[in-house]
Amino acid sequence: MGARVITVTSGKGGVGKTTTTANLGVALAANEQRVACIDADIGLRNLDVVMGLENRIVYDIVDVVEGRARLRQALIRDKRLPELCLLPAAQTRDKSAISPSEMVQLVNDMRNDFDFILIDSPAGIEQGFKNAVAPADEVIIVTTPEVSAVRDADRIIGLVEAEEKGPARLIINRLRPAMVQRGDMLSREDVLDILAIDLIGIVPDDEAIIVSTNRGTPAAMHNHSPAGTAYRQIARRILGEDVPLLTPEPQTGLMARFSRWLRGE
C-alpha cells in the first residue's frame, strides 16, 4: 500500500506532460499530500527545470538504480513546498539505463514515504514509455486538441489497456475556447468522441504557463492564472473531490469585446 502511483503520458511530444506533472505535483503538495515527482525522461530531463530545482541535482535516478546513491540522497526537496520532492532523470544516459522491473522496484521502495508518486513519461511508445508505465497504479493521458495528438493518445490508451493498468483518465491541454467556438479547433466533445475515456480536466491555453515554466515556478503555485487554477482543480479531483468540470468559455472582457467589434462580429 502507501502511495498512489500515477504516470503522466501522451505518446506525442510537446503536449505538456512535464508541465502537467510539475503542476499536479505542486497542487497536490499544496493540499498537504506528500508528493514525489519522478522524471522518467532519461537523457532529456526537463522536469527539474520546470520545477526550478535544476541547480540542486547531485544524484539522479540512474545513480540510485545502479547503487551509487541512496534514494534519500537523490531526492530533492522543494524549498517552497516541503511536502514536494523530485527524483531527477540522468542527463548523460539514455532510456536503456533502466529496465521496467528496476523501475517497479524503485517505486515500491518509495511507496511508504509518500501519498502520491507522479511519473513524468517521455514521449513515444518505446522503452522509456514502458519504464514509466510499468510501476503505475493509474495513468493520466495528456493531449492537446489537435488531430495528431489525439491519434497518438488513442494509441497510448490502447497500449495502457493492454498492460491492464486500469482505465486511463484524460487531460485536454492548451484548449483555446475562442478557436473552438469558431470551429477552428477540436472541441472537448470531438476529443472525447474518439478517445472515449474519463475526462479529469481541461487546461486552457495560457501564456502564464510559458512564463512560469521558464522561471521554474509552476503556475499552480499562483492563484491568478487560468491554467494554474485548472491544475489545482484537477488535483482536487484526483483527491476524490467532486469539482464541476466546466468547458472554458471565450474571454468576455472589455478587450475581447473590443477586438470582436473591430473584426465586425
Binding site: R151, D152, D154, R155, I157, G158, E161, A196
Partner: peptide, 24 residues
C-alpha cells in the same frame, strides 16, 4: 471493444466489431 490507433485485426473470415474502429 473499441479498436484504437495502432491496433490491427486480420482474420480469414468475417469480422464483427461491437465498438468503434478509431482512426489509425
Amino acid at each position: 471493444r473499441t479498436l484504437r490507433s495502432g491496433q490491427s485485426v486480420r482474420h480469414g473470415g468475417h469480422v464483427v466489431v461491437i465498438g468503434d474502429v478509431n482512426p489509425g
